[in-house]
């Protein structure tokens, strides 16, 4: 066999052996510890959403607390002034 023929055989397009695509997919699957990539992405999204939800809840709680403290401060200031005036009148 001359060089030209060897090159021709080596470079000729060949179909992959039967089951090649399945073996590649299985190897990729094993590379991610048994979890398909889309499940990893889904899990990451869930974790992200849960984190965002907790942060939002924390934010809402802090806002509610600030509003309550403001409300109580306004009420306390008014009560304080009313009591001061009434006490002055009584004296």
């Amino acid at each position: 066999m001359d060089l030209e023929q060897e090159l021709y055989q080596a470079l000729t397009r060949k179909d992959p052996p039967p089951g090649f695509a399945d073996r590649v997919a299985a190897r990729e699957h094993n590379r991610h510890g048994g979890l398909p990539t889309r499940w990893l992405a889904f899990a990451a999204s869930v974790v992200l959403l849960m984190g965002a939800g907790a942060a939002w809840r924390q934010h809402q709680g802090e806002v509610a607390k600030d509003q309550v403290m403001t409300a109580m401060k306004i009420t306390a200031v008014k009560l304080n002034r009313i009591q001061t005036h009434v006490r002055e009148i009584r004296q």
């Binding site: 709680g61 509610a64 607390k65 309550v68 403290m69």
Partner: peptide, 25 residues
């Protein structure tokens, strides 16, 4: 300020009882 029951209950969970003012509230 219009703070209905659910807002008050949420705020109560975030009030720090180790702080005298917040404990009173």
């Amino acid at each position: 300020l219009s703070l209905a029951g659910p807002t008050l209950r949420l705020a109560a969970r975030f009030l720090d009882t180790s702080d005298p003012d917040e404990a009173k509230v």
